[in-house]
Simulated assay, not measured.
Amino acid sequence: MVERLKRYGALIRFDRPIGTLLLMWPALWALWLAGKGSPSWDVVVIFALGTFLMRSAGCAINDYADRHIDGHVKRTSNRPIATGLVSPREALAVFAFLSLAAFGLVLLLNWQTVVLSFVALALAAIYPFMKRYTHLPQLVLGMAFAWAVPMAYMALTENVPPNAWLLYIAAVIWALVYDTQYAMVDREDDLKIGVKSTAILFGEYDIVMILLLQLSMLGLMVLIGVKEELSLFYYLGLAAATLLAVYQQILIRKREPAGCFKAFLNNNYFGMVIFAGLLAHYLVTLNPS
Rank of each mutant, 00 (worst) to 15 (best):
W111P: 02
S77Y: 03
L22E: 03
F275K: 07
R89D: 10
V106C: 00
V114M: 00
M143D: 09
L167H: 14
V94T: 11
W32S: 01
L28Q: 01
D179N: 08
P288N: 08
S56V: 01
F264V: 05
Y234H: 07
G104W: 10
D15L: 14
L123F: 00
G50N: 10
R75C: 04
F103M: 07
S197P: 03
A280C: 02
V140Q: 12
N110I: 00
L116Y: 05
D63W: 05
A34G: 02
R75H: 04
L220W: 08
P88Q: 04
L244E: 13
G58Y: 05
L141S: 07
E228Y: 10
F202E: 06
L53W: 05
G58S: 03
M54K: 10
M272V: 00
L49Y: 11
V222H: 03
F118N: 10
L236D: 01
G203A: 08
I200R: 13
R187E: 14
L218A: 14
R187S: 10
L238A: 04
I18Y: 02
A280K: 00
V160F: 11
G35H: 06
V160L: 11
L23T: 05
W32D: 07
F202M: 08
T51C: 15
I46L: 13
M151W: 05
F275N: 09
D190P: 09
H135T: 11
G194L: 13
G271N: 05
T180M: 12
K131W: 01
L166Y: 15
L123R: 00
I207D: 15
E229W: 09
S99F: 07
K74E: 15
V94Q: 06
V160E: 10
R13I: 09
L107T: 00
Y153W: 14
V160I: 15
L53R: 14
E256N: 11
K74Q: 15
N268K: 03
M24P: 00
Y234C: 13
K196F: 13
T157R: 15
A144K: 11
V149F: 06
S40H: 05
L215P: 04
V140S: 06
W25L: 02
L232I: 13
G277T: 00
P39T: 03
V208D: 12
V284A: 06
I81V: 14
Q181T: 00
A48M: 10
D189M: 05
D42V: 08
N62V: 02
L53S: 04
T242R: 06
I81P: 05
W147E: 02
